[in-house]
Amino acid sequence: MNFLTLDLNLLRVLDALLHEGSTVKAGERLGMSQSAVSGALSRLRHALGDPLFVRHGQGLRATDYAASLATPLRVELDRLEELLCGGERFVPHEAELSFKIAGSDFFAEMLMPRLATDLRRKAPGIRVQLVDLVPYSYVETLERYEADLALLPDTQVPDWVEKRALFRSSFVAIAARGNPRIAAAGIKAGEMLPMDLFCDLGHVLFSPEGKTSAMGDAALARVGRQRRVVMTMPVFSGVCRAVSVSDLIALVPRQLAEQLSDQLALSIHPPPMPIDPPLIISAWHRRSSANPAHRFMREEIAQVLSSLNEGGELPLP
């Protein structure tokens, strides 16, 4: 390949094809016709000496060589964009943009109201959208521009994703005030539920995927016990409301329980086994790290959520 004669616009087409897996969608992303994208792909194949993509169903699947180019190509294109556009001035109060956050409905209660207040004062032209976090698919969500930031429990991330520790949150057990079996046992709000009662009561489990075990079950297994999960919910609000009108109980983040306890008439109890407070992080695509608007939003979100932290110092960003 003669790099001096390579049309660098073809690299933008290759990047779009790698992300979209379709000449039609790549064309929509770039403002090009399908035929123009197909022509560009033909020139790329000739220049790089590789098929780059093979037909797979209704879309295209990258060859091993093309797939190996995806991350470094995106990094270099972002670097070029930063070189050419990095000097643009960002003034929060004058900014007009949208920012999409992927996260559970925990953040609808614990982040969005205060963030709305802060942005109304600092950056009224920024529109924020909270969308459902799809577990195990947040990487694809970030990669395909479907979210600008993901909020989730700490996890391993690929090298093109950056993350920042935000807060730790312990879990508590919630029950309806006046739960008959808890009342019959003489347990008051704030008192620990006995292990036998905790395991025997029916549990509602937060699980977007519909799983019937989670962190609480692992903690019980470590002490040789097991609970009865009788219902799962994809949102925390559903978990809390189901508990509030039944004799079921649930494990939920302490901050959320305290936020909703009066509204839903919930009693809060320490669980009878230790559960390590999970570390909640923000994660984003490295291409956005130097973007001043993205950096501004990351800091605003971190500032709001840092007030929720419990359990000591956080790992450095």
Results as ranks from 00 to 15, higher is better:
residue 78 D to G: 06
residue 149 L to Y: 04
residue 60 L to V: 03
residue 125 G to S: 04
residue 139 V to R: 11
residue 109 E to A: 06
residue 87 G to V: 09
residue 45 R to N: 08
residue 114 R to A: 04
residue 150 A to T: 11
residue 116 A to T: 05
residue 75 V to Y: 14
residue 129 Q to M: 14
residue 164 R to E: 09
residue 145 Y to Q: 13
residue 105 D to Y: 01
residue 104 S to M: 06
residue 94 E to Q: 11
residue 32 M to P: 05
residue 150 A to D: 13
residue 99 F to G: 03
residue 62 A to G: 02
residue 91 V to D: 03
residue 161 V to R: 02
residue 46 H to Q: 15
residue 96 E to P: 00
residue 53 F to K: 05
residue 45 R to Y: 13
residue 127 R to A: 11
residue 136 Y to I: 04
residue 31 G to L: 00
residue 102 A to L: 04
residue 169 S to K: 07
residue 90 F to Q: 03
residue 135 P to N: 06
residue 55 R to E: 07
residue 30 L to D: 03
residue 151 L to F: 10
residue 76 E to K: 15
residue 83 L to S: 15
residue 61 R to P: 04
residue 113 P to M: 05
residue 104 S to Y: 14
residue 84 L to V: 06
residue 134 V to I: 15
residue 154 D to W: 14
residue 34 Q to L: 01
residue 64 D to E: 14
residue 53 F to S: 06
residue 136 Y to M: 12
residue 72 P to H: 01
residue 116 A to N: 03
residue 71 T to E: 15
residue 81 E to H: 14
residue 52 L to W: 07
residue 159 D to S: 10
residue 124 P to S: 11
residue 144 R to L: 08
residue 93 H to Q: 15
residue 29 R to D: 05
residue 29 R to S: 11
residue 78 D to H: 02
residue 33 S to P: 08
residue 142 L to S: 06
residue 118 D to I: 05
residue 42 S to E: 03
residue 133 L to W: 00
residue 24 V to A: 08
residue 62 A to V: 00
residue 39 G to S: 12
residue 88 E to V: 09
residue 64 D to G: 12
residue 40 A to R: 14
residue 101 I to R: 07
residue 36 A to N: 03
residue 162 E to I: 08
residue 44 L to K: 09
residue 165 A to D: 13
residue 158 P to E: 04
residue 26 A to S: 13
residue 82 E to Y: 15
residue 108 A to T: 05
residue 158 P to H: 02
residue 105 D to R: 01
residue 136 Y to D: 12
residue 155 T to V: 14
residue 40 A to L: 13
residue 126 I to G: 08
residue 127 R to Y: 04
residue 125 G to L: 09
residue 134 V to D: 14
residue 81 E to K: 14
residue 85 C to L: 15
residue 45 R to F: 12
residue 128 V to S: 06
residue 109 E to P: 00
residue 150 A to F: 12
residue 42 S to H: 08
residue 56 H to S: 15
residue 122 K to S: 15
residue 143 E to V: 08
residue 79 R to C: 00
residue 81 E to I: 10
residue 67 A to V: 02
residue 101 I to Q: 07
residue 170 S to F: 12
residue 27 G to M: 08
residue 148 D to H: 15
residue 89 R to D: 14
residue 98 S to C: 08
residue 99 F to A: 05
residue 24 V to P: 02
residue 33 S to G: 12
residue 140 E to F: 04
residue 79 R to F: 05
residue 56 H to F: 12
residue 71 T to V: 15
residue 61 R to H: 09
residue 52 L to H: 12
residue 140 E to P: 00
residue 71 T to S: 14
residue 130 L to N: 08
residue 160 W to T: 01
residue 136 Y to S: 13
residue 109 E to D: 12
residue 94 E to C: 04
residue 59 G to S: 00
residue 31 G to N: 03
residue 89 R to N: 13
residue 127 R to H: 07
residue 113 P to C: 02
residue 112 M to T: 07
residue 166 L to Q: 06
residue 33 S to F: 10
residue 100 K to E: 07
residue 168 R to G: 01
residue 137 S to L: 05
residue 68 S to N: 09
residue 116 A to S: 07
residue 63 T to D: 13
residue 126 I to D: 10
residue 76 E to N: 11
residue 141 T to S: 11
residue 159 D to N: 09
residue 79 R to G: 07
residue 31 G to P: 00
residue 121 R to G: 11
residue 152 L to R: 00
residue 70 A to P: 06
residue 136 Y to F: 10
residue 114 R to T: 08
